[in-house]
Write a protein that binds this DNA or RNA. Structure first.
Lengths: 212, 212
DNA sequence: TAGATTGTTAATCGATTAACAATC
DNA sequence: TAGATTGTTAATCGATTAACAATC
Protein backbone atom coordinates (compact mmCIF):
# COMPACT_ATOMS: atom_id res chain seq x y z
CA UNK A 1 0.00 0.00 0.00
CA UNK A 2 1.88 3.02 -1.25
CA UNK A 3 1.49 6.45 0.27
CA UNK A 4 -0.47 7.90 -2.63
CA UNK A 5 -3.48 5.65 -2.21
CA UNK A 6 -6.75 7.52 -2.40
CA UNK A 7 -5.63 11.11 -2.56
CA UNK A 8 -8.65 13.37 -2.43
CA UNK A 9 -9.70 15.20 -5.57
CA UNK A 10 -9.25 18.49 -3.72
CA UNK A 11 -5.55 17.76 -3.38
CA UNK A 12 -5.18 16.40 -6.91
CA UNK A 13 -6.73 19.48 -8.46
CA UNK A 14 -4.23 21.67 -6.60
CA UNK A 15 -1.20 19.82 -7.95
CA UNK A 16 -1.07 21.58 -11.34
CA UNK A 17 -1.10 24.89 -9.53
CA UNK A 18 1.87 23.92 -7.37
CA UNK A 19 3.59 22.77 -10.51
CA UNK A 20 3.02 26.11 -12.20
CA UNK A 21 4.35 28.18 -9.34
CA UNK A 22 7.34 25.93 -8.85
CA UNK A 23 8.16 26.11 -12.55
CA UNK A 24 8.08 29.88 -12.28
CA UNK A 25 10.32 29.96 -9.21
CA UNK A 26 12.67 27.54 -10.91
CA UNK A 27 12.86 29.75 -13.99
CA UNK A 28 13.65 32.68 -11.73
CA UNK A 29 16.63 30.70 -10.51
CA UNK A 30 15.34 30.27 -6.98
CA UNK A 31 16.81 27.18 -5.31
CA UNK A 32 14.87 26.68 -2.12
CA UNK A 33 11.55 27.70 -0.65
CA UNK A 34 9.76 27.20 2.63
CA UNK A 35 6.13 26.14 2.88
CA UNK A 36 5.42 29.53 4.46
CA UNK A 37 6.89 31.46 1.54
CA UNK A 38 5.30 29.25 -1.11
CA UNK A 39 1.94 29.52 0.64
CA UNK A 40 2.26 33.29 0.62
CA UNK A 41 2.93 33.44 -3.10
CA UNK A 42 0.05 31.10 -3.82
CA UNK A 43 -2.40 32.71 -1.37
CA UNK A 44 -2.98 29.54 0.62
CA UNK A 45 -1.93 28.38 4.10
CA UNK A 46 1.45 26.86 4.88
CA UNK A 47 -0.37 24.00 6.56
CA UNK A 48 -2.13 23.16 3.35
CA UNK A 49 1.11 23.19 1.37
CA UNK A 50 2.76 20.78 3.81
CA UNK A 51 -0.30 18.55 4.09
CA UNK A 52 -0.71 18.39 0.33
CA UNK A 53 2.90 17.56 -0.40
CA UNK A 54 3.04 14.99 2.37
CA UNK A 55 0.31 12.99 0.68
CA UNK A 56 3.03 11.92 -1.73
CA UNK A 57 6.17 11.88 0.38
CA UNK A 58 8.48 13.89 2.56
CA UNK A 59 10.03 16.13 -0.05
CA UNK A 60 11.25 18.81 2.35
CA UNK A 61 14.00 19.04 4.89
CA UNK A 62 13.52 20.35 8.40
CA UNK A 63 15.12 23.70 8.98
CA UNK A 64 15.71 24.17 5.27
CA UNK A 65 12.47 23.92 3.31
CA UNK A 66 12.02 22.45 -0.14
CA UNK A 67 14.35 22.37 -3.11
CA UNK A 68 12.42 24.14 -5.86
CA UNK A 69 13.86 22.19 -8.79
CA UNK A 70 13.55 18.88 -7.00
CA UNK A 71 10.00 19.49 -5.85
CA UNK A 72 9.04 20.57 -9.35
CA UNK A 73 10.32 17.29 -10.74
CA UNK A 74 8.56 15.32 -8.01
CA UNK A 75 5.21 16.86 -8.88
CA UNK A 76 5.92 16.38 -12.57
CA UNK A 77 6.37 12.70 -11.84
CA UNK A 78 3.31 12.51 -9.60
CA UNK A 79 1.18 14.10 -12.30
CA UNK A 80 2.75 11.78 -14.86
CA UNK A 81 3.63 14.53 -17.31
CA UNK A 82 6.44 12.37 -18.64
CA UNK A 83 3.80 10.18 -20.25
CA UNK A 84 2.81 10.42 -23.90
CA UNK A 85 -0.74 9.26 -23.79
CA UNK A 86 -2.00 8.94 -27.34
CA UNK A 87 -4.96 11.23 -27.80
CA UNK A 88 -7.30 12.31 -30.56
CA UNK A 89 -9.46 15.36 -30.98
CA UNK A 90 -13.01 14.72 -32.09
CA UNK A 91 -14.43 17.82 -33.75
CA UNK A 92 -12.14 20.52 -35.07
CA UNK A 93 -14.57 23.39 -35.11
CA UNK A 94 -13.51 26.60 -33.46
CA UNK A 95 -12.93 25.00 -30.10
CA UNK A 96 -11.24 21.80 -31.24
CA UNK A 97 -9.04 23.83 -33.55
CA UNK A 98 -8.12 26.18 -30.72
CA UNK A 99 -7.09 23.28 -28.51
CA UNK A 100 -5.06 21.70 -31.27
CA UNK A 101 -3.19 24.94 -31.92
CA UNK A 102 -2.99 26.21 -28.40
CA UNK A 103 -2.11 23.37 -26.06
CA UNK A 104 1.37 22.02 -25.44
CA UNK A 105 0.21 18.43 -25.26
CA UNK A 106 3.77 17.12 -24.99
CA UNK A 107 4.33 18.99 -21.76
CA UNK A 108 1.03 17.80 -20.34
CA UNK A 109 1.48 14.06 -20.65
CA UNK A 110 -0.16 13.63 -24.03
CA UNK A 111 0.62 13.23 -27.71
CA UNK A 112 -1.93 14.34 -30.26
CA UNK A 113 -2.07 11.62 -32.90
CA UNK A 114 -5.31 12.32 -34.74
CA UNK A 115 -8.07 14.82 -35.51
CA UNK A 116 -11.55 13.95 -36.67
CA UNK A 117 -14.48 15.87 -38.05
CA UNK A 118 -17.60 15.19 -40.09
CA UNK A 119 -17.46 18.34 -42.20
CA UNK A 120 -16.25 17.53 -45.73
CA UNK A 121 -14.67 20.97 -46.01
CA UNK A 122 -12.42 20.24 -43.07
CA UNK A 123 -11.48 16.66 -43.85
CA UNK A 124 -8.13 16.52 -45.59
CA UNK A 125 -6.93 19.85 -44.28
CA UNK A 126 -3.95 19.84 -41.97
CA UNK A 127 -3.83 20.87 -38.37
CA UNK A 128 -0.66 20.72 -36.31
CA UNK A 129 0.80 18.51 -39.01
CA UNK A 130 -2.08 16.06 -38.81
CA UNK A 131 -4.47 15.40 -41.66
CA UNK A 132 -8.04 15.85 -40.49
CA UNK A 133 -9.83 12.55 -40.88
CA UNK A 134 -13.49 11.88 -41.43
CA UNK A 135 -15.42 10.34 -38.55
CA UNK A 136 -16.00 7.27 -40.72
CA UNK A 137 -12.30 6.49 -40.38
CA UNK A 138 -12.52 6.54 -36.58
CA UNK A 139 -13.21 2.85 -36.08
CA UNK A 140 -10.28 1.77 -38.26
CA UNK A 141 -7.98 4.34 -36.66
CA UNK A 142 -8.82 3.09 -33.17
CA UNK A 143 -8.07 -0.49 -34.21
CA UNK A 144 -4.76 0.46 -35.73
CA UNK A 145 -3.34 2.80 -33.08
CA UNK A 146 -3.56 2.03 -29.40
CA UNK A 147 -5.26 5.20 -28.22
CA UNK A 148 -5.47 6.33 -24.61
CA UNK A 149 -7.71 9.38 -24.57
CA UNK A 150 -10.13 11.47 -26.59
CA UNK A 151 -10.78 15.19 -26.45
CA UNK A 152 -14.42 15.78 -27.30
CA UNK A 153 -15.16 19.09 -29.02
CA UNK A 154 -18.45 18.17 -30.62
CA UNK A 155 -22.01 19.11 -29.71
CA UNK A 156 -23.73 17.14 -26.99
CA UNK A 157 -26.02 15.43 -29.48
CA UNK A 158 -23.06 13.92 -31.33
CA UNK A 159 -21.18 12.62 -28.30
CA UNK A 160 -23.02 9.42 -27.51
CA UNK A 161 -22.44 7.75 -30.86
CA UNK A 162 -18.79 8.70 -30.83
CA UNK A 163 -17.97 7.52 -27.32
CA UNK A 164 -19.77 4.25 -27.96
CA UNK A 165 -17.20 3.57 -30.66
CA UNK A 166 -14.29 4.84 -28.57
CA UNK A 167 -15.33 2.93 -25.47
CA UNK A 168 -15.71 -0.25 -27.48
CA UNK A 169 -12.09 0.21 -28.57
CA UNK A 170 -10.93 0.48 -24.98
CA UNK A 171 -10.64 4.24 -24.62
CA UNK A 172 -11.55 5.12 -21.04
CA UNK A 173 -10.27 8.68 -20.68
CA UNK A 174 -12.07 11.74 -21.94
CA UNK A 175 -11.59 15.48 -21.92
CA UNK A 176 -15.15 16.53 -22.41
CA UNK A 177 -16.24 19.99 -23.53
CA UNK A 178 -19.83 18.97 -24.14
CA UNK A 179 -22.69 18.63 -21.70
CA UNK A 180 -23.13 14.96 -22.38
CA UNK A 181 -22.83 13.09 -19.10
CA UNK A 182 -20.26 10.44 -19.97
CA UNK A 183 -19.91 9.00 -16.47
CA UNK A 184 -23.61 8.22 -16.27
CA UNK A 185 -23.27 5.93 -19.24
CA UNK A 186 -19.79 4.56 -18.63
CA UNK A 187 -19.12 4.59 -14.92
CA UNK A 188 -15.52 3.43 -15.21
CA UNK A 189 -14.57 6.25 -17.57
CA UNK A 190 -12.09 8.87 -16.39
CA UNK A 191 -13.63 12.16 -17.39
CA UNK A 192 -12.51 15.74 -17.03
CA UNK A 193 -15.36 18.03 -17.93
CA UNK A 194 -14.85 21.61 -19.05
CA UNK A 195 -18.18 23.37 -19.01
CA UNK A 196 -17.44 26.83 -20.33
CA UNK A 197 -21.03 28.01 -20.18
CA UNK A 198 -21.25 26.89 -16.55
CA UNK A 199 -18.18 29.00 -15.81
CA UNK A 200 -19.73 32.03 -17.44
CA UNK A 201 -22.99 31.57 -15.53
CA UNK A 202 -21.00 31.40 -12.32
CA UNK A 203 -19.24 34.61 -13.26
CA UNK A 204 -22.62 36.18 -13.92
CA UNK A 205 -23.93 35.08 -10.52
CA UNK A 206 -20.89 36.44 -8.77
CA UNK A 207 -21.17 39.75 -10.61
CA UNK A 208 -24.78 40.08 -9.47
CA UNK A 209 -23.85 39.35 -5.91
CA UNK A 210 -20.62 41.23 -5.53
CA UNK A 211 -21.11 44.41 -3.57
CA UNK A 212 -20.33 47.72 -5.15
CA UNK B 1 -30.76 40.25 5.46
CA UNK B 2 -32.06 38.20 2.54
CA UNK B 3 -31.86 34.44 2.47
CA UNK B 4 -29.14 34.33 -0.17
CA UNK B 5 -26.49 35.98 1.94
CA UNK B 6 -23.15 34.21 1.78
CA UNK B 7 -23.97 31.14 -0.25
CA UNK B 8 -20.94 28.87 -0.38
CA UNK B 9 -19.02 28.57 -3.63
CA UNK B 10 -19.73 24.83 -3.63
CA UNK B 11 -23.43 25.57 -3.93
CA UNK B 12 -22.98 28.37 -6.46
CA UNK B 13 -20.91 26.21 -8.77
CA UNK B 14 -23.64 23.59 -8.77
CA UNK B 15 -26.35 26.02 -9.86
CA UNK B 16 -25.53 25.96 -13.59
CA UNK B 17 -25.75 22.19 -13.50
CA UNK B 18 -29.23 22.29 -11.96
CA UNK B 19 -30.15 24.80 -14.58
CA UNK B 20 -28.98 22.54 -17.38
CA UNK B 21 -30.85 19.50 -16.17
CA UNK B 22 -34.02 21.47 -15.50
CA UNK B 23 -33.86 22.99 -18.97
CA UNK B 24 -33.62 19.50 -20.39
CA UNK B 25 -36.55 18.21 -18.36
CA UNK B 26 -38.54 21.26 -19.34
CA UNK B 27 -37.80 20.66 -23.02
CA UNK B 28 -38.98 17.10 -22.57
CA UNK B 29 -42.27 18.52 -21.40
CA UNK B 30 -41.94 17.24 -17.85
CA UNK B 31 -43.98 19.35 -15.42
CA UNK B 32 -42.93 18.27 -11.95
CA UNK B 33 -40.03 16.49 -10.32
CA UNK B 34 -39.15 15.37 -6.82
CA UNK B 35 -35.78 15.99 -5.22
CA UNK B 36 -35.29 12.22 -5.20
CA UNK B 37 -35.85 11.89 -8.92
CA UNK B 38 -33.78 14.94 -9.83
CA UNK B 39 -30.97 13.73 -7.60
CA UNK B 40 -31.04 10.38 -9.37
CA UNK B 41 -30.75 11.95 -12.81
CA UNK B 42 -27.92 14.18 -11.67
CA UNK B 43 -26.07 11.51 -9.65
CA UNK B 44 -26.21 13.41 -6.38
CA UNK B 45 -28.17 12.96 -3.15
CA UNK B 46 -31.72 14.17 -2.66
CA UNK B 47 -30.57 15.88 0.53
CA UNK B 48 -28.10 17.95 -1.43
CA UNK B 49 -30.72 19.00 -3.94
CA UNK B 50 -33.09 20.16 -1.20
CA UNK B 51 -30.35 21.86 0.80
CA UNK B 52 -28.99 23.65 -2.24
CA UNK B 53 -32.35 24.92 -3.40
CA UNK B 54 -33.35 26.00 0.08
CA UNK B 55 -30.41 28.38 0.20
CA UNK B 56 -32.50 30.57 -2.07
CA UNK B 57 -36.05 29.85 -1.03
CA UNK B 58 -38.71 27.21 -0.64
CA UNK B 59 -39.43 26.46 -4.26
CA UNK B 60 -41.03 23.09 -3.69
CA UNK B 61 -44.30 21.90 -2.31
CA UNK B 62 -44.65 19.13 0.23
CA UNK B 63 -46.18 16.00 -1.16
CA UNK B 64 -45.75 17.27 -4.72
CA UNK B 65 -42.16 18.17 -5.46
CA UNK B 66 -40.93 20.99 -7.67
CA UNK B 67 -42.45 22.53 -10.76
CA UNK B 68 -39.78 22.06 -13.43
CA UNK B 69 -40.54 25.17 -15.43
CA UNK B 70 -40.91 27.33 -12.35
CA UNK B 71 -37.72 26.06 -10.74
CA UNK B 72 -35.82 26.58 -13.99
CA UNK B 73 -36.93 30.20 -14.04
CA UNK B 74 -36.04 30.65 -10.38
CA UNK B 75 -32.49 29.45 -10.98
CA UNK B 76 -32.26 31.56 -14.12
CA UNK B 77 -33.10 34.56 -11.97
CA UNK B 78 -30.74 33.55 -9.18
CA UNK B 79 -27.90 33.20 -11.67
CA UNK B 80 -28.94 36.50 -13.23
CA UNK B 81 -29.00 35.18 -16.78
CA UNK B 82 -31.50 37.88 -17.68
CA UNK B 83 -28.67 40.41 -17.44
CA UNK B 84 -26.81 41.74 -20.44
CA UNK B 85 -23.46 42.52 -18.94
CA UNK B 86 -21.37 44.29 -21.54
CA UNK B 87 -18.25 42.27 -22.21
CA UNK B 88 -15.24 42.39 -24.47
CA UNK B 89 -12.85 39.71 -25.64
CA UNK B 90 -9.18 40.57 -25.41
CA UNK B 91 -7.21 38.45 -27.85
CA UNK B 92 -8.92 36.75 -30.77
CA UNK B 93 -6.37 34.07 -31.46
CA UNK B 94 -7.64 30.52 -31.73
CA UNK B 95 -9.13 30.51 -28.27
CA UNK B 96 -10.68 33.98 -28.27
CA UNK B 97 -12.10 33.32 -31.68
CA UNK B 98 -13.56 30.01 -30.54
CA UNK B 99 -15.28 31.69 -27.61
CA UNK B 100 -16.65 34.45 -29.80
CA UNK B 101 -18.10 31.94 -32.25
CA UNK B 102 -19.09 29.24 -29.85
CA UNK B 103 -20.70 30.82 -26.80
CA UNK B 104 -24.30 31.96 -26.53
CA UNK B 105 -23.44 35.02 -24.49
CA UNK B 106 -27.01 36.28 -24.58
CA UNK B 107 -28.27 33.21 -22.77
CA UNK B 108 -25.52 33.44 -20.20
CA UNK B 109 -26.11 36.96 -18.92
CA UNK B 110 -23.67 38.74 -21.23
CA UNK B 111 -23.53 40.76 -24.41
CA UNK B 112 -20.37 40.76 -26.46
CA UNK B 113 -19.72 44.35 -27.49
CA UNK B 114 -16.09 44.35 -28.57
CA UNK B 115 -13.09 42.29 -29.65
CA UNK B 116 -9.48 43.38 -29.38
CA UNK B 117 -6.18 42.09 -30.70
CA UNK B 118 -2.70 43.43 -31.35
CA UNK B 119 -2.12 41.55 -34.58
CA UNK B 120 -2.44 43.92 -37.57
CA UNK B 121 -3.69 41.05 -39.74
CA UNK B 122 -6.64 40.52 -37.45
CA UNK B 123 -7.56 44.13 -36.77
CA UNK B 124 -10.37 45.22 -39.06
CA UNK B 125 -11.66 41.71 -39.71
CA UNK B 126 -15.13 40.89 -38.46
CA UNK B 127 -16.10 38.39 -35.85
CA UNK B 128 -19.69 37.81 -34.81
CA UNK B 129 -20.55 41.06 -36.50
CA UNK B 130 -17.96 43.00 -34.55
CA UNK B 131 -14.98 44.71 -36.11
CA UNK B 132 -11.79 43.57 -34.39
CA UNK B 133 -10.16 46.60 -32.82
CA UNK B 134 -6.52 47.23 -32.07
CA UNK B 135 -5.47 47.22 -28.42
CA UNK B 136 -4.55 50.87 -28.78
CA UNK B 137 -8.28 51.66 -29.07
CA UNK B 138 -9.01 49.92 -25.79
CA UNK B 139 -8.70 52.94 -23.54
CA UNK B 140 -11.04 55.05 -25.66
CA UNK B 141 -13.51 52.19 -26.02
CA UNK B 142 -13.65 51.72 -22.24
CA UNK B 143 -14.33 55.41 -21.74
CA UNK B 144 -17.10 55.43 -24.31
CA UNK B 145 -19.00 52.24 -23.41
CA UNK B 146 -19.76 51.29 -19.87
CA UNK B 147 -18.22 47.84 -19.83
CA UNK B 148 -18.86 45.21 -17.16
CA UNK B 149 -16.53 42.33 -17.91
CA UNK B 150 -13.56 41.22 -19.96
CA UNK B 151 -12.72 37.80 -21.33
CA UNK B 152 -8.96 37.42 -21.41
CA UNK B 153 -7.63 35.19 -24.15
CA UNK B 154 -4.09 36.52 -24.32
CA UNK B 155 -0.81 35.08 -23.05
CA UNK B 156 0.04 35.53 -19.40
CA UNK B 157 2.78 38.02 -20.20
CA UNK B 158 0.29 40.37 -21.86
CA UNK B 159 -2.36 40.29 -19.16
CA UNK B 160 -0.98 42.70 -16.59
CA UNK B 161 -0.81 45.71 -18.88
CA UNK B 162 -4.27 45.06 -20.20
CA UNK B 163 -6.02 44.60 -16.86
CA UNK B 164 -4.32 47.71 -15.52
CA UNK B 165 -6.18 49.66 -18.18
CA UNK B 166 -9.42 47.78 -17.68
CA UNK B 167 -9.32 48.05 -13.90
CA UNK B 168 -8.64 51.76 -14.14
CA UNK B 169 -11.84 52.05 -16.18
CA UNK B 170 -13.84 50.28 -13.51
CA UNK B 171 -13.99 46.77 -14.94
CA UNK B 172 -13.96 44.35 -12.02
CA UNK B 173 -15.07 41.08 -13.61
CA UNK B 174 -12.83 38.80 -15.60
CA UNK B 175 -13.07 35.47 -17.34
CA UNK B 176 -9.44 34.55 -17.35
CA UNK B 177 -7.90 31.87 -19.58
CA UNK B 178 -4.34 32.86 -18.74
CA UNK B 179 -2.19 31.90 -15.79
CA UNK B 180 -1.84 35.46 -14.63
CA UNK B 181 -3.05 35.69 -11.04
CA UNK B 182 -5.49 38.60 -11.26
CA UNK B 183 -6.79 38.36 -7.69
CA UNK B 184 -3.32 38.74 -6.24
CA UNK B 185 -3.03 42.14 -7.87
CA UNK B 186 -6.65 43.30 -7.61
CA UNK B 187 -8.21 41.65 -4.60
CA UNK B 188 -11.68 43.04 -5.26
CA UNK B 189 -11.83 41.62 -8.78
CA UNK B 190 -14.37 38.90 -9.53
CA UNK B 191 -12.43 36.30 -11.47
CA UNK B 192 -13.39 33.02 -13.03
CA UNK B 193 -10.27 31.21 -14.10
CA UNK B 194 -10.26 28.53 -16.77
CA UNK B 195 -6.96 26.74 -16.70
CA UNK B 196 -7.13 24.27 -19.54
CA UNK B 197 -3.63 22.94 -19.04
CA UNK B 198 -4.40 22.30 -15.36
CA UNK B 199 -7.42 20.28 -16.43
CA UNK B 200 -5.33 18.20 -18.79
CA UNK B 201 -2.70 17.57 -16.12
CA UNK B 202 -5.44 16.42 -13.79
CA UNK B 203 -6.71 14.06 -16.46
CA UNK B 204 -3.18 12.77 -16.88
CA UNK B 205 -2.85 12.15 -13.15
CA UNK B 206 -6.14 10.33 -13.01
CA UNK B 207 -5.21 8.17 -15.99
CA UNK B 208 -1.99 7.17 -14.24
CA UNK B 209 -3.82 6.29 -11.08
CA UNK B 210 -6.93 4.62 -12.42
CA UNK B 211 -6.77 0.89 -12.01
CA UNK B 212 -6.96 -1.35 -15.04
C1' DT C 1 24.45 24.61 19.42
C1' DA C 2 20.47 27.63 18.15
C1' DG C 3 17.23 28.71 14.62
C1' DA C 4 14.38 27.30 11.16
C1' DT C 5 11.19 24.54 9.19
C1' DT C 6 9.36 20.22 8.29
C1' DG C 7 6.14 16.11 9.04
C1' DT C 8 2.32 14.85 11.52
C1' DT C 9 -1.15 14.77 14.98
C1' DA C 10 -5.02 17.15 16.97
C1' DA C 11 -8.61 20.78 16.64
C1' DT C 12 -11.63 23.31 13.89
C1' DC C 13 -14.37 24.33 10.36
C1' DG C 14 -17.48 23.56 6.58
C1' DA C 15 -19.96 20.63 3.53
C1' DT C 16 -22.63 16.55 2.86
C1' DT C 17 -25.89 13.22 4.29
C1' DA C 18 -29.51 11.36 7.19
C1' DA C 19 -33.64 11.80 9.60
C1' DC C 20 -38.06 13.40 10.51
C1' DA C 21 -41.71 16.64 11.72
C1' DA C 22 -44.46 19.76 8.95
C1' DT C 23 -47.65 19.97 5.37
C1' DC C 24 -49.52 19.76 0.79
C1' DT D 1 -57.77 11.04 4.98
C1' DA D 2 -53.39 8.65 3.57
C1' DG D 3 -49.32 9.09 0.88
C1' DA D 4 -45.76 11.73 -0.73
C1' DT D 5 -42.36 14.88 -0.38
C1' DT D 6 -40.62 19.05 1.26
C1' DG D 7 -37.95 22.19 4.53
C1' DT D 8 -34.99 21.96 8.19
C1' DT D 9 -32.49 20.28 12.09
C1' DA D 10 -29.10 17.04 13.67
C1' DA D 11 -25.33 13.70 12.68
C1' DT D 12 -21.56 12.51 9.94
C1' DC D 13 -17.96 13.01 7.14
C1' DG D 14 -14.07 15.22 5.02
C1' DA D 15 -11.09 19.05 4.35
C1' DT D 16 -8.58 22.80 6.25
C1' DT D 17 -5.99 24.93 9.81
C1' DA D 18 -3.32 25.09 14.04
C1' DA D 19 0.08 23.36 16.96
C1' DC D 20 4.19 21.25 18.12
C1' DA D 21 7.59 17.62 18.61
C1' DA D 22 11.16 15.91 15.52
C1' DT D 23 15.20 17.09 13.16
C1' DC D 24 18.15 19.20 9.81
Amino acid sequence: MSKNDSISMSVIRRLPRYYRFLTELDEQGIDRISSTKLAQIMSVTASQVRQDLNCFGGFGQQGYGYSVSQLKIEIETILGLNNSYKAIIIGVGNLGNALAQHMNFGQLGFELVGCFDISPEKVGREIRGLRIRHDSELEAFCSEKKLDAAFLCIPKSAVENVIDVLYRHGIRSYWNFSHFDICSKYSDAVVENVHLSDNLMTLCYRMNNSLG
